[in-house]
Design a protein around this nucleic acid. Structure first.
Lengths: 103, 103
DNA sequence: ATACCTGTCGATCCATATATCGACCATGAC
DNA sequence: GTCATGGTCGATATATGGATCGACAGGTAT
């Protein structure tokens, strides 16, 4: 089972979750196969930043949303060459959910 | 079986084979697993250009040898992002060997 | 009204692997 | 000798995805 005692940054996480766009991104990452189909990269690597352009926002806006998610710890980034792949960080998400009980 | 009637560029091929460096590169590509170990890319994609730096030549020299091999048709190039992967073009090699009988 | 924060954009910057360029040297043909 | 050719180099250019920057608009608090 996952460790719920990871130290998380509640502030950054809540700030990250404060935007509908970022919440939707996080949801997309939950089921990559359902929302993305990248013929160029296997899904196991995570979702390539460019794939998010489907949401209609500009590259720069997407990049900043993604970096907010990464900064919060909710999402991890993996760089491969010129690409950046993103995945949910489930342990952090679980720990955050657990921490909400202390509210 | 492979088709030996592919039209090949004898001139370019012989020019490519005229250099010991290029012949060695071609030989390395024959057994990728034996000569290369790239933890970053699966061997099935071919050999990444950067891997050839082991031969001690400069990047620019390597690049020009590789492009001569590609131009000759003996080798194929596959671009993936900022990388270029190379593989032997066995059908062309076979056709060339067959064509040598007409000398 | 002013100040502040967030989201957004276009433009620009950065990082990286590869490609091209210009110069030099050695060799062989003439 | 002169010339052309091929290999080599360092320096520079290219390409591309992503990151950062500066400006602007809308909302909210004071």
């Amino acid at each position: 089972m996952t460790d719920l005692n990871i130290d998380i940054d509640r502030d950054a996480i809540l700030k990250a979750l404060a935007s509908p766009v970022r919440r939707e991104m996080l949801a997309w990452l939950k089921e990559p196969a359902k929302h993305f189909s990248d013929e160029h990269h296997p899904l196991e690597m995570g979702i390539c930043a460019g794939q998010f352009e489907r949401c209609g926002l500009s590259q720069s806006t997407i990049s900043s949303h993604l970096s907010a998610l990464v900064a919060s710890g909710l999402v991890t980034q993996r760089r491969v060459g010129q690409w950046a792949f993103y995945q949910r960080n489930e342990p952090v998400i679980a720990a955050f959910r657990a921490a909400l009980d202390d509210l």
